[in-house]
Structures are given as C-alpha cells and as structure tokens.
Design a protein around this nucleic acid. Structure first.
Lengths: 420, 420
DNA sequence: GGGACTTACTTTAACATTGAAATAAGCTCT
DNA sequence: AGAGCTTATTTCAATGTTAAAGTAAGTCCC
C-alpha cells in the first residue's frame, strides 16, 4: 500500500489511509504505518498528531521493545463502522456486513431475479431492509458482479451470464440507499480483499485464480489491482485451449471455461458415465450440489478422481502456467468454490503446472485458500475499506464519501447523514 | 508519460523530462508539455523559465493559433547529444548511434562470441572504438539482451539461448566505457522504444508482440512497461500450446515458440517437403535467410503460404487472443523480423485471432510495423532517453547520470567528464 | 469594430511531504 | 553504572507541486 499526494489542495487521503489500516489490521506503531503506506515517519507523526487531536486515534501507552526506543502503537478510538458487501448471482444476492478488519458480523441471502426489469429496485429494497438492521455506522456498500464493470465509481455492469445488460447498478443503489456504492467485477473484488486482508500483506505482484461457475483471474501488479483498458482484465477462463471445444456463451469455442467451468465439468462427468449423478442439475443453484456429489464419487473411485477432477486440474495447470510465463508474478493464489475439492484437482494441476512452466520459474509457490460461503460477498465489502488506500483516485467521489464517513465513524458519531 | 515528485529534496526530474520530450519529439508548447507530462501548466512555466535562464531551451517566437492566445513552442538550444543502443546476439553486436528523436546516425555490426570467457571485454573494446568515433556527446548506452535481466541499473543477464550466465553486463561495460549503461531484455527495450517514439504517444495500455527467432511480448500498463516480479514478464513464446509438441530449451514442451519460432517454422517447412530450401541453415545467422527463401516460395505457392506461414499465423493468433482476453489491452502492436513476411502470416493470424477473442473485444485493433535491421538496437538506445521520464526510479543512479549528461549536452558543452 | 469566447501562459499563496538532525528511550555489555 | 548501540519519534527548514485567479493575445460573429 502506498499513499503519496503532492501539490496544493488538501485531500485527507493520508488520514483515511491510517484509519483504514488501523481498522483493517488492528493497532500499529507509527513506524509500521510509515512502512506500510510508504511514507516517511515524519509524515505519520504529523498526521497522527492531528487524528489524536480530533479524538479519532489514541496511543496505547503500552510498549514493545527490541533493542531500541519502545514503540507506541496507535489504535482507533472506536472500532466502529461496518462495511457491507453484496455478491450478485442470477438467482440471489449474498450480503454480508463486516467489521473493518473483515470479521463477518452478519450474513444473509436474499432472492434476486436479474432478468426482471425492476431487478435493481428489488435489490435496493432487500438491501435497504438489511441495512436498516445494522446498528453501526455503515461506511459504504461494495457490489461484486460476474461480468464487466466500467468503473468502480459509475458502476455500469454488463453480465451476459446472469442477464444484466448495461445496468446502472451503482447509480440505482446509491440513489435508493443513500450510501456510497462501489461496483466491481466479482473476481476483482475478491482480489481487492486478498490485497487488503490476504497475500497482499506479503506479496505485491501476484495472480488470484478463482474456480467457481467460471474460471477467473485477478491480477495484482505492484500492489495495484490491474483492471485492464476496459475493466475487463483477468479473463483467464476465456483463453483458448482446444481447437474442437464446446461453444462458449461469450462467442468463441474451446476456451478454458467451456472446458472445465461448472458446465464443462458436468459434461465431462456425463462422458464418464456419471449422468445419473449429474442429472437434473442444469439450474444455476443445483450445479454446486452436483459437483459436490461428483466429488464424493471421486473420493471413492480413483478413476473418477483422475478422469474428472484430475483432468480438469491438468487443464487449469496448463493455463495458469501460461499466465505465469506471460506475467511472471511472485505467487499464485487459488480460491473459489472449487477449492473445496482441491484435494481432487491438485494432482492434475500440480503435474501440468510444473511441467509447463519455464524452468526458471518452476518453483513459484501457489497458495490454496480455504473457501467459505461468504467470501464472495466479503470480497465485495473489501472494496469499501480499500477506498481509504486509493491514492490514484480510481474510486472517485464515492471513495471520498467513504473516507468522510470513515472519519465520522472513527470519531464516534453514529450514522452521519447520508449525502450522495 | 508522467512525472510527479513530491517531497523535500531536489531531483531535477521535471527539467530532464522536458529536455527528453523536446529532444525526442521536437518543439512543443508549454501546454503540450503539461499534458504529456501530466503536470500543471504552472509547473511547466516555472521549469521552462529555469531552463531558458540556463540557456538550454529557447522560445521559438513563432506562433500557431486556433481561437485563443497563440502558443509559443519551446525547443532545445542544441539538438545535440546521441544515444547509443546495442543489441546482443550470439554471434554479433548490432550497434546504433541515434539522435534523441530516434534518427539513426550511424549503424554498425561487430562480431561477438557470447560463449568466450572474455566476451564482455571483447564487447567493451568494440563499443569503445565505435564510441570514440562519435562526434557528439553520448548520453549513455542501452543494451538489449534476449533473456532475463535483473534490473536496468545493475544489468545482470541470464540468457541461455546465447550462452550468457549471470553475466555482469552493466558493471563491465560501465567500468570500461565510462558512460551510463542501461541493460534490459531486448523485447522490453523495443517496448520502451514503442512507448517513447511509437504507439505510446496514442495508447497507454498495450501489448507489443515480436516475431523473431523467438516470439516475445512487451506489456505496457498505464504507460509503464511491466517487467514482472523478476524482470521476466512477457514470455508469450512459452505459453503452452500443444500436448505433444517439440521440446523447448527452456525446459518444457509444446510452447508457442517451439512451435512457430524460427526453428519451429523450419521444422514445419521440412515436414511440408521443403527440406532443400531450408537445408544447411541450422546456424544462427542463416535462419533468417532460410525464412526469406521460404517466403519467396510461399508467395509463388499458395499451399506453402497456407501450410507454413498461415499455419504459424493461426497459432500466433490464438496465443495473442489468449493474452488479450487475459489482459484487456487497448491495442496490439506486431513487429520483429517476422513482420517482413506479415502478408503471409496475416490470413492465418486474422482468422484465429478474431475467432478466439471474447465477443466483446473482437474489434480490438492491431498494428503491424514496418521492420528494419536496426530496430532492435534502436530499441536499446531508447532505454537511454527513457530515463529522463523515469518517475519511479527504476533506472536508479544510471538514470541520474543520464539526466545530468542530458543537461550538459543541452547546454552545449561537449563531452562532460564521465564519472561512473 | 466591439463584445463574447477561447486558449495560452503567469502569478500567488497554500500545502503535503521530505531528509536531516535532534531527541527519546530503551537494550547490551563491560 | 555508564558507554555504545539501536530503534522510535519529533522538529525543522526546504521543496516541488498545485488550484485559483489573473493576464495576454488571439478568433468569431453580429
């Protein structure tokens, strides 16, 4: 993370970054803050002096020494404030309310029909009800959508897979909720979460591979999530893999996702004679169950393990090796629903991945994260706290609003008036 | 291009950027400079005032109006100064001396044997002789190497293909030439040139595909050349393409380069019964001639055109489509020796490329640049002028030295004392 | 020919940030 | 106990940059 402002106008970015860091990671010393924000210690001294005067930050008199002057950790006065995240699917919204540190306080799932003309109204009503039930100031709402989003701030989404076309998600929710709203592709949101709470604390250039209904890839370069020219970077799922593959709804054939995304996996299962395990699971919500049933079968039958999940792992390993050869990251993170079956994917992945890497990067590490139900929505929530580190204005006015609310929340006031 | 410095210590980055821009693009108005360097007009006023006082820049009284106060373009006082670029191959060094604007003033080729223990001595002697013949102040020397380079500044190179292992190229040349030396992977150097002199003036996020002995890819994100965690980004040539492909010297099989790099192309030619056209061309320098002969044959025989170059274009198109789907650039640039035969590659490339893109980015443009002998070396030379725009210190002390020499050259003094 | 508009450049008073030096407050070892 | 070292924080005087407001010098059109 890094914040550097130059020039004449105030921007309150540094104080927000400090609040954001203290909120998401807990108490830190001035020296740690300076290192994390890539700013000189002198700057932290000044900014923290101000924050303490405003009563938003306090010094934990406590000590911790190791050969030099003992450090005096700073902490938020109230660890107040909630960030809310929404993951949009074709059939429902997964919603979480979390603390700044990523602790989930509340998780809900509400029905949603993307295809309905008043889908956004419906969503706003459901979210409004949930928000009303939160007894802490809400800094903002992050929304993760499987598809292309033009920018976090304007939040116009195109998602053929769930049936949203040119949907003004940001504007609609903002207006109806009276809160800052940040919209992003779901994989990128998860990548932001990884940056704030996960491997981002250790590495600065890495890939985040998601295995879910589709196969996604978040790209972090020098601590920045790379969105691509049109916000559409990371479509590793649509790298061409085979000449004679199945058609993909996105207008080509033989891509990775058509091969080993949920539907591809089920096609392969049928070809292995497992039709009865998969049958009747064409609907969106049943796919995950079907794949779990397949995993059970595979854990009893090595031939299925190898022919289905091992096979898929092999394709994935090849594609990820290609991405690593192309982009030379420090590390690769694997997560998503599919990581629940990683024991089955792993042998195929490992073999193909290592074999297809260039010799010089054959030892690149990959980390597989435990997955849980709420992670997509928590990723979306991370968009909100990440605005406090947004040095280059990618989150625009919505980011400013969140930072303002962060100040209010930190200073102990409850529920600042929404102005959006 | 963008320069922003904040903080307390002088750094002379902005003046250097202005000199660099004026040198590489010719006269510009203050407003244009402000836009190009993403700095306010006020800043340009101040910096240019200083540069004019120091006699390094002058105002071309001339005018150019279009509805408002006419602009007063600034120009370098002496368009003096040369940048020198060296492309390293297994058998020779291609050397050019160019003006700041990229005009080639002198081009030479000297023998080089990378495998010899005293290879760097040999290189330094040859370069020294050439440098002595240049009658203008030389700002620095850029070196392009096919292989991995740790950093521009330290310049330690690993190039299995030409037989350099952990070679201290930067240190050796610096010491013996007494000039700033910047070392970079050859494809990245070409990409820097594209950024300074080419599409970088129009686009900020793009891919540069090179077709030569191997297949390379330069990645530019937001106006910055992306080097990867270990300086090894861009190895599109080593993306896995086929399961049963030929072995690659880099330790895997079936990658794009083993398929359609020079040697792959010749293998395919032999399979098409064109052994006699290719025979006896195993040596490094003869490959290019062999491929030219194949192109002649193909231009007379459609079956060869389709089965050889069209076939290769198809593989390339698929790989580039994958990279575009993954990275979502604004544009793709194609260059390198192979672009001489682009008429033959094109049909196969076009078909595969468009077919394998996601529908939403099917209309991404690609530009094929005319190629000439000196481009690799000129790319290396561009490393030198690019240091004047280096806001984040990637070029370190060598960059500072170049900027200092740029000031001296612009102020008209000949040959400042080298201190390295 | 004179207002309305544009575009280019300057002046000015902030202002966030910084390196360097100073101060603070421990540890370690004799 | 005190010298020497280390680490944390603070003070301070510079510095590069900027937004806003002002000035300069044109075009356009009635």
């Amino acid at each position: 993370m890094s914040v550097t402002q130059s020039g004449a106008r105030p921007s309150d970015l540094l104080p927000a970054s400090i609040l954001g860091l203290l909120g998401s990671r807990g108490p830190m010393t001035r020296a740690e803050l300076a290192a994390a924000l890539r700013v000189s210690a002198a700057t932290i001294t000044q900014a923290s002096k101000d924050l303490m005067a405003r009563g938003m930050v306090l010094e934990l008199g406590q000590i911790a020494s190791a050969g030099g002057r003992p450090a005096r950790p700073l902490s938020l006065v109230g660890s107040s404030g909630r960030i809310v995240g929404v993951k949009v699917t074709a059939t429902h919204l997964a919603v979480v309310a979390a603390g700044l540190d990523g602790t989930v306080w509340q998780a809900e799932s509400v029905p949603f029909e993307a295809a309905r003309p008043d889908a956004l109204d419906q969503a706003a009503r459901s979210l409004g009800a949930i928000l009303d039930g939160i007894d802490q100031p809400v800094l903002g709402v992050g929304v993760g959508i499987p598809g292309a989003v033009d920018s976090l701030e304007s939040g116009v989404a195109d998602s053929p897979t769930i049936g949203l076309h040119n949907a003004q998600v940001g504007a609609a929710l903002r207006q109806r909720l009276g809160l800052p709203v940040l919209v992003e592709n779901d994989v990128n949101a998860l990548t932001v979460a990884e940056q704030v709470y996960g491997v981002g604390r250790t590495y600065s250039t890495y890939l985040v591979i998601t295995i879910g209904r589709g196969i996604g890839c978040g790209i972090v370069i020098d601590g920045q999530v790379y969105r691509g020219a049109g916000g559409g970077a990371g479509e590793i799922g649509h790298i061409p893999m085979v000449e004679d593959g199945a058609d993909c709804p996105l207008g080509h054939a033989g891509c990775l996702e058509s091969l080993i995304g949920s539907s591809g996996l089920m096609r392969q299962a049928r070809q292995l004679g497992l039709g009865q395990v998969v049958d009747g699971s064409a609907s969106f919500d049943r796919e995950r169950e079907a794949i779990r049933r397949l995993a059970e079968v595979a854990r009893r039958d090595p031939a299925v393990a190898e022919g289905l999940f091992g096979w898929a792992g092999g394709w994935l390993g090849g594609a990820v090796a290609g991405a690593v050869n192309l982009l030379n990251p420090e590390v690769v993170v694997v997560l998503g629903e599919g990581s629940e079956q990683w024991d089955l994917w792993q042998p195929g992945f490992e073999a193909a991945f290592r074999a297809k890497l260039m010799a010089s990067r054959r030892s690149i590490p990959y980390l597989v994260e435990a997955w849980d139900e709420d992670k997509w929505a928590l990723g979306a929530a991370a968009l909100v706290i990440a605005t406090s580190f947004d040095r280059d204005g990618a989150t625009g006015y919505q980011g400013e609003l969140v930072r303002e609310r962060l100040s209010h929340a930190a200073s102990g006031r409850r529920r600042p008036q929404a102005r959006v």
